[in-house]
Design a protein around this nucleic acid. Structure first.
Length: 477
RNA sequence: GGCCACGUGGCGGAGAGGCUACGCAGCGGACUGCAAAUCCGUGUACUCCGGUUCGAUUCCGGACGUGGCCUCCA
């Protein structure tokens, strides 16, 4: 079996990945808070860890990998949204969870094995908090229950932070009764009009970090193989998860911690507070999800990635080139039992080096373009598609990609639906076919003036003609 | 202030102590009636200054620059 290496944030080193139980490989990734549309930066972890999910499933077998990505469906921002719109909690969270799932599907993200919701695990959270209180790691105050950072000798081991070095923590409003500034809320005492649950330590709602600890324990176990998320979650979120879970259980929470870098706009972090966000949902109106996905995978997951219009144009051109190779072999049925190239697999296994994997994918596309014999073609096509599948790419019908056919099921996975829909209505495939045939006839008759005229007409429709010895093919730009 | 990343050709972006990354764009060639697509070829790239070394863009130190976390944040 090929060895996978991953950079573990806990050790800051690239390590050989060995699951505790190869029959049950567990991964948890922090999912969205469902109160709003996700921006494209929010889409980086689901896409990156989707590639890892695919690699793990290939390595250990589909049924042996359990991947959980949560929905945070109780939180300050959701409550704020409730008072803004007057909607009920579930109305908001269900709506945005649905949108999130649709957007992720459009980006080619496989559904995780499990998608636990915080509000469905409040009793587990309460139990965990009780354990922490009993162990003396948490205490009750007027405003809620807090984790006592002083009780945890290992606090700071993930972010390598010394509490003394930190700037004096900004005081969180309403938490004046904490014993220490770095203590964090496990449970927030109920306020009038807010969603609340009964608990032995008073009616209230969970703090942010406790949900992940509780859901990981419930759905995956006390020690999981991989825990992932954005680099900004490293502190305090993941540090606090570790503190809660490890104090309660005396066992490591996760064996490998993975963190992806940010998306930036003009070299500045894309974030809602800066206000420089592009919503995935809106980008999907303008670009195929696959183009966005390729752009997201064009840099190594730990590196920052500057999101620009030019990046998308380049990704689009690259993708069209790859699909051109698939298209060229459209009537070849791929050979069944074929693996992607070693270069490709080695790249993915080397800490998920997707740029290097893309380079290997390009080589496979060139091989496919150069293939002569039928068997060469069948093999080359199969390898290209197999490699593409591991990146979540190249799985669409080239006829649809190049606008010769419209997908009957008008769902969000199409992404470029609007784009091609207009062109397809104005200039349907039948009309283009007719023009292309007319042009072919003109060329046969050596009436090149007419042939060129028709090509010009097609160009204006956004159609590119490609002449071959036995006829012409076409695609939409 | 503490901690942490990063600085590669026109653009994006890997990488390794000496050997072509790759993609996009450009240029030249083949193919084509002309194109397109494809194939082949093509670019004195590694922020600066020291050090280690036979040899560093790659290791070490420093400078400068950019960004991130320390507060909600993917």
């Amino acid at each position: 079996m090929r060895t996978i290496e991953l950079t573990n944030s806990l050790t800051r080193a690239k390590e050989i990945f060995t699951p505790a139980d190869p029959k049950r490989v567990t991964m948890y990734v922090c999912g969205p808070t469902v109160y709003n549309y996700a921006h494209i930066g929010n889409a980086r972890p689901p896409v990156v860890f989707d590639v890892l999910f695919r690699l793990l499933r290939r390595t250990y077998g589909e049924e042996h990998v359990i991947y959980a990505r949560n929905f945070t469906d109780i939180d300050d921002r959701i409550i704020a949204r409730m008072s803004e719109t007057g909607e009920r909690l579930e109305e908001i969270t269900n709506k945005y969870a649905d949108i999130y799932e649709a957007d992720m599907a459009a980006l080619g993200v496989l559904p995780p094995t499990l998608a636990p919701r915080a509000t469905a695990h409040v009793s587990e959270m309460i139990a965990l908090i009780e354990t922490l209180i009993a162990k003396g790691a948490a205490y009750q105050a007027q405003s809620g229950v807090y984790f006592s950072v002083a009780a945890d000798a290992n606090y700071g081991k993930l972010s390598r932070r010394d509490l003394d070095d930190m700037r004096v923590s900004a005081r969180v409003e309403g938490e004046d009764d904490k014993r220490a500034p770095a203590d964090f809320a496990l449970w927030k005492a109920a306020k009038p009009g807010e969603p609340a649950w009964d608990a032995p330590f008073g009616r209230g709602r969970p703090g942010w970090h406790i949900e992940c600890s509780a859901m990981i324990e419930k759905t995956l176990g006390r020690t999981i193989d991989i825990h992932g998320g954005g680099i900004d979650l490293l502190f305090p979120h993941h540090e606090n998860e570790i503190a809660q879970s490890e104090c309660a259980h005396g066992a490591p929470l996760a064996r490998v911690w993975l963190h992806n870098g940010f998306l930036t706009m003009d070299a500045e972090k894309m974030s809602k507070s800066v206000g420089n966000v592009l919503l995935a949902h809106e980008l999907l109106q303008r670009w195929p999800g696959e183009v966005l996905r390729l752009a997201l995978l064009s840099a190594h997951y730990r590196a920052p990635l500057d999101w620009t219009e030019d990046l998308l144009k380049q990704a689009d051109a690259t993708l069209k080139g790859l699909y051109g190779a698939v298209d060229r072999l459209n009537d070849v049925s791929p050979e069944g039992d074929v693996e992607p190239s070693d270069d490709f697999l080695d790249a993915l296994c080397d800490d998920l080096n997707t740029p290097m994997a893309m380079a290997a994918l390009s080589t496979l596309a060139t091989d496919a373009n150069k293939a002569k014999s039928e068997s060469e073609k069948a093999t080359a096509k199969a390898r290209l598609l197999k490699a593409g599948e591991m990146l979540g790419l190249l799985q669409r019908d080239p006829d649809i990609v190049f606008g010769r056919k419209v997908n009957a099921s008008l769902n969000a996975t199409l992404g470029n639906l609007q784009l091609h829909a207009t062109a397809t209505v104005d200039w349907p495939a039948e009309k283009i076919d007719a023009l292309v045939s007319a042009r072919f006839a003109a060329r046969r008759a050596k009436n090149f003036a007419e042939a060129d005229r028709i090509r010009e007409e097609l160009t204006e429709m956004g159609v590119i003609v490609m002449d071959g010895p036995e006829g012409s093919t076409w695609r939409r730009a």
